[in-house]
Amino acid sequence: MELVLETKNINKHFRKPVDFHVLKDISLGIKKGEFASIMGKSGSGKSTLLYILSTMDTDYTGELFLNNELATGKPPQELSRLRNKHIGFVFQFHYLLSEFSVVENVMLPAKKLAEKSHAEIEHDAMEKLKMLHIEHLAKQRASRISGGEKQRVAIARALINSPSILMGDEPTGNLDSHNSENVFSIFKRLKEEEGLSLLVVTHDEDFANRTDRIIQMEDGRIVS
């Protein structure tokens, strides 16, 4: 099976305030269409790993492949483009641009990519919002909707450029069980209907148990 994401011996140190070996020999692969979750105690390095995998953090040793292409060592400009086109990211805190409308937030990455016309992008964005049942909020200011709705907008934004992989750092961490369940079923459907690959950090045991694979981390190592 083809890998969308692969790492070979990734090591990372924090040098301040004291030298701290936060990630130790991380080697893993995510298959196309796989829904994987990362679990582990607080401070075990899950977020740190996710930032490296999403190419936002480049201060590490080892190799990172995206769609079998080496991402490590590429210039920042190219990494930005890679991130724009191939990686969708959902944060624990639904980061939206509060001065823009919901639909504008969703459209922004696609406008940056500039592969489609404005009309097509708007159409795509409305499709994503519909799929997440929030199309009625399209014209609302992003600052004027609820937390659960914001999280769904963030998911729509992460999906707008049809990425190779969707990453989430505790995307349900701030949601109640109802909304949490809702987000899970959206992820599940994306995997099943669109063959999307997902890698999600979570503390929620139930959530993790329903994914294809759990990657367990402990003190900066993958233990299973």
Partner: peptide, 16 residues
């Protein structure tokens, strides 16, 4: 600050 982080996370470069 947050907006800048978001823009960068979603693929805008430092130059942008």
């Amino acid at each position: 600050m947050k907006d800048i982080a978001i823009l960068k996370a979603t693929g805008f470069s430092g130059g942008d």
